[in-house]
Nucleic acid binder design. Structure first.
Lengths: 321, 321
DNA sequence: CCCCATATGCTCAAAATAAGTATAAGTGTC
DNA sequence: GACACTTATACTTATTTTGAGCATATGGGG
């Protein structure tokens, strides 16, 4: 049994949320992009989080700000290509945020826009076309494909709830549920790569919307991280971890929208952020906005001493537009 | 390195939330009460959750309903009595709920009211006297006790925020933060037992409010579980996991209050539960209430197909009364 | 000086919350 | 059987929060 630590290191730059992936090794035959990972050294590290910070600094030169343990992934067949036996890989997954200004590009890895890996999660410009045009029909077809009527209904209802079809509404935090459903339905690159497709259907075009398959269950770990971050921004001021020291309120809004994957009402956003005491004016202005110059703000650290659960107000659910 | 699975198995009976603890072994010298735990068998179990269900059924005869992974605990000195070296214990903590009707008492273990382990967390009958009379002054004294003014202020502010002193308000979900602070301040039995008390003060009376120390960091795992459950009841119908098949609305309210540790407004509670479609009438009545007979309700399973995040409305924060 | 773009301030209706009052329908007491 | 007492349930009201829009401010570029 081997225990390692996997890190979802995220940031927001140019209004896009990004995650650090280690490039596929072109030397190897079946290499895939993967999350950075390191061993856990029980002798050397006092805590797992400390161990994580250490090897991330060693490997990437990044100094992590916010770090939180996500989940421990230990299912058999995490790596379907290695069913033969061998040591079972157990990973403790972590999510970490770094400031967009600090996010240089470590050698051998890349900052990948996470909505290129989860395009159905990006509702910032309305309901994703992929969802209505491709995934919804394919999911319903998959439901029909079940052997008996009962299973068909169950599949259909599960799809309706997790994807908010009809007037159910989209629950932004359920990223993992949606990924798992798509995996089962054979609609992500990993299902195909894992050889789990049983039907005669050609579903290899999943690559066109999810990109190439990631290593092991790393896209699942990523989905867990995105869901956790979306929940977290509501009651902890983690959004400021990805911001530069000074920013306009609209910058802050776009970063929030990037993580939340949903558009926000501009006037209300600024009203709430200000009234909750999350930010304070720096006194300076930014004239890079193209129109009227915007005031620059900074994070008001005192807010954590004043209110127990300070975060940006983001609706958990929203509807198609 | 050893990996095991620890379980916080909780229920609510007679309006008290309870957790299953394995009794201390009176044969052994330094034995303490502990959470049930079992090994993780990578060869036998397909998933960790499956492994957990298996050994819980074997050891206790309980069939777990809701099960959720909590956190993986891997700090060095989880067991301060075993600093010498030796294998480092890593535990994946789980929280599980069982119905109060199914909760028989397995041999060698006991259902312990969790507010006997965390008396400051029970606000159902108002602000706990222990908090205002004992813990608050002792925490402030501990803050004063810091070596320099800066550290004093930091300690004081940390105590004020996590315990909501002044008009800050109590954040019911921060159970772990509060336990950790009390541990550092030497105000729980474990600090004393771990030999972490440095000051000359006699603080062994922590036993009088926390009871005897639990094994290793098991009270920390418990605190994590309570916090998680309190958050969870708001957006998942987990409260019904501890209810019998039929119940009155006031039964449901008391179970909710038990987990949340806060009183709820009766009329509003029933209005919300009904309007959210969480329950439906069974058509029967209960006359065991002492006054006017109450209608019996059952959980409406369909609610999870209708709304993405169905849960009981419980305020996250509340104030002293 | 006018147009355009964005920032910022303010209003208003709808919805959700919080906290009552009022009434119903049983049990037990005398 | 009248009455006190207990709990259940229905309904009202004030307040806060939210969602969405309109109006105005202030820069840059012709």
């Amino acid at each position: 049994m081997v225990l390692d630590l996997s890190a979802v290191i995220a940031t927001v730059s140019e209004d896009e949320p990004r995650v650090l992936l280690v490039d596929a090794n072109t030397e190897e035959a079946d290499s895939r992009r993967r999350l950075p990972f390191g061993p856990f050294d029980p002798a050397g590290d006092r805590t797992m989080e400390e161990g994580l910070r250490r090897w991330v600094a060693d490997q990437t030169g990044l100094n992590l700000g916010f770090v939180e343990q996500l989940y421990t992934f230990g299912d058999r067949f995490r790596d379907p290509s290695a069913r033969a036996g061998g040591p079972r890989p157990i990973s403790v997954g972590y999510v970490a945020l770094v400031s967009q200004t600090a996010a240089k590009r470590p050698a051998g890895s890349s900052w990948v826009e996470w909505y290129r890996l989860f395009p159905w999660e990006d509702w910032r410009t309305g309901t994703p076309a992929l969802l209505t045009d491709v995934l919804q029909p394919k999911l319903l077809a998959w439901a029909e494909d079940a052997p008996e009527a009962r299973a068909q209904r169950q599949r259909r209802e599960r799809a309706e709830v997790t994807f908010g079809f009809g007037d159910l509404g989209w629950d932004a935090d359920r990223v993992l549920d949606r990924y798992e459903l798509l995996y089962e339905a054979g609609l992500v690159a990993e299902t195909v790569a894992d050889g789990r497709i049983k039907t005669g259907q050609d579903q290899t075009d999943a690559h066109t919307w999810t990109g190439s398959p990631l290593h092991q269950d790393h896209r699942r770990i990523l989905a867990t991280a995105i869901g956790r971050l979306r929940g977290k921004i509501r009651y902890r001021p983690v959004i400021f971890e990805v911001m530069p020291p000074a920013f306009t309120l609209f910058d802050l809004q776009r970063a929030t929208e990037a993580l939340a994957g949903a558009p926000l009402h501009k006037q209300n956003f600024r009203r709430l952020v200000a009234s909750e005491g999350l930010v304070e004016e720096t006194g300076q202005m930014s004239s890079e906005t193209g129109g009227r110059p915007a005031k620059l703000f900074r994070f008001r650290r005192d807010v954590v001493r004043e209110r127990p659960a300070p975060g940006v107000r983001v609706p958990r659910r929203h509807h198609a537009r």
